[in-house]
Amino acid sequence: MKCWVYDGAMTMIFGIPVQAFLGQLLVGLINGSFYAMLSLGLAVIFGLLRVINFAHGALYMLGAFIGYLLLTRFGIGYWPALILSPLIVGGFGVVVERLALSRLYDIDPLYGLLFTFGLALVLEGVFRYYYGVSGSPYSVPPLLSGGTNLGFMFLPNYRGWVVVASMIVCFGTWVLIEKTKLGSYLRAATENPRLVQAFGVNVPLLLTLTYGLGCALAGLAGVLAAPIYQVSPLMGSDLIIVVFAVVVVGGMGSILGAIVTGYMLGLAEGLTKVFYPEASNLVVFVIMAIVLLVRPAGLFGRDV
């Protein structure tokens, strides 16, 4: 029924190279959408908290699982889950920040990385314990099932939606941070938290909300991903390492940089799948190595 949803299957339906090419490019664009959304969240969190959120992949997995559980346990469908799941994941993030991360701001940022690494292991372990390592399918919402023939290629509606939705999310976050009053507080607190606090802004609250927002972004990406990839406890840890490479390439100095790098590397991965499939797993890391040689600070980075 939904075999066209999986990677590769499209190339088997259409044996023609051009369409295979476009198909892989679409897969690349989809992967890029997730890289962009996740590296965006990492950049937002890192910008203010100076914490590399290793749990970001696990929170993405949590978002997908909450969507799945809402559907199977409570019969709540895709569209409400798209709102509810990020809220729950964001709330979880707020609790984690209040209870633990807020105690780690004054010490070496490596401890934040190690703490969130532990958190990622626990989250992954819990879901693995209850749901095993095999994935569970999450069907595409009826409104977006089927596909559209664009003339030059067949576009599954859901995939088109994911690309559009991720762009809206990225653009929205960019506007929130670069163009709103709240965003200006946030950017100011990134530059000089003490001074901003002296002006009467509640910086600890801002930190908590930022972490919550970053986590919610990961949760949202998870729900969007659920119908494309299967819902599995391991879906996050496989992704997070690639996203780290994306972050190293883009540098975490700029929100826009994180977004652009995410899409670019996704597309690069898609292209590699067409020309040299064996290397498609490696290409992001190879690009990272090249960027480190040529521009150690990253493409958009300020700090070395």
């Binding site: 690494f117 532990g118 292991l121 372990g125």
Partner: peptide, 8 residues
């Protein structure tokens, strides 16, 4: 993994 993560 849960034990390892908690210890961390």
């Amino acid at each position: 993994t849960i034990a390892t993560g908690l210890t961390f």
